[in-house]
């Protein structure tokens, strides 16, 4: 049971005492086994078919295709949460829906993640959702009694209907385990609504491909519109590359310019 009170005024996390402790990243080459399950496919056909019909759209081929965020995230949890560790809050951030559209996946992840954390999903915010997710992990550490947090950023590459938006090229997931004694301190995180893709930043920049920046130290991999910058950050953290980084991304549809200051020791 998670129980808490609202944020007490003036509560602060002391500098250097909280941040990212460990990171993991993984591509998933194959569709999930769930996509071959007849019972699942029947439910998916009805749910997604009804949703599309309300918009005059039709369902294409879906059997044996697509990924499940529950299974992707579970694999990352096993990599990033060490034996004996516990997690207090888990945030799942995504933009593209997976093949289990009616499933409370974050609640399921609370069950399989050590610590039975408070868990929820942040979505409908394009590439900004992961930034919001990291902010919320920090706010629950600061005022919600959840010092050990886990952000899971996921994207899957297959939708069974025509979409106006670019889909990821691969199924990808990134996990950032946060808590005391970090290897990377998390500074200011900002989502600027109704913004332009122009970034003026000091420090080393890890930028999404839609960002226009005069200097970019590391560019997110092509085809990973929602996990790309976090994929790069995970590489920096796992590779022990010290520096003051600005992680930046721009969502061309929703027009958020998002930044997060990360100081890797």
């Amino acid at each position: 049971m998670y129980a808490t009170r609202p944020a007490a005024p003036g509560t602060v996390l002391e500098q250097g005492t909280w941040g990212i402790r460990r990171a993991a990243r993984q591509l998933f080459a194959e569709p999930t086994q769930l996509s071959h399950n007849d019972a699942h496919n029947g439910r998916f056909r009805e749910y997604t078919g009804d949703m599309l019909a309300a918009f005059g759209m039709s369902l294409g081929a879906f059997e044996g295709r697509g990924q499940s965020y529950g299974e992707m995230a579970e694999a990352l949890i096993r990599q990033v949460v060490a034996p004996g560790e516990q997690v207090d809050v888990l945030v799942l951030a995504y933009a593209v829906p997976d093949i289990a559209p009616g499933r409370a996946t974050a609640t399921y992840l609370s069950y399989v993640c050590p610590g039975n954390p408070l868990a929820f999903a942040v979505t409908d915010q394009g590439s900004a959702a992961a930034f919001t997710g990291l902010r919320l992990v920090r706010e629950y550490a600061r005022t919600g009694g959840c010092p050990r947090g886990l952000l899971l950023v996921v994207e899957q590459a297959d939708l069974p209907y025509d979409t106006a938006s670019e889909l990821p090229a691969a199924h990808a997931a990134v996990a950032l385990l946060c808590g005391p004694d970090p290897v990377a301190e998390v500074g200011r995180i900002v989502n600027r609504p109704n913004s332009t893709p122009v970034l003026t930043a000091t420090g080393k920049t890890i930028a999404g491909r839609a960002v226009e920046a005069s200097v970019v130290d590391r560019l997110a991999p092509d085809g990973q519109p929602y996990t790309g910058v976090w994929w790069e950050l995970a590489g920096v953290i796992s590779g022990h590359e010290p520096g003051d980084f600005v992680v930046a991304d721009f969502d061309p549809q929703l027009r958020y310019l998002s930044t997060a200051e990360i100081a890797v020791r």
């Binding site: 409370a104 929820f120 409908d124 915010q125 902010r135 706010e139 919600g144």
Partner: peptide
């Protein structure tokens, strides 16, 4: 137009209370 908008989900009908709680924490910060 000054607002960040997003959905909170995966707690089914309990997501409303989760949204209220985290709204307060964001404003507090």
């Amino acid at each position: 137009t000054n607002a960040e908008a997003f959905a909170i989900s995966h707690q089914a009908c309990s997501s409303g209370l989760q949204a209220l709680d985290l709204a307060g924490r964001l404003l507090s910060a």
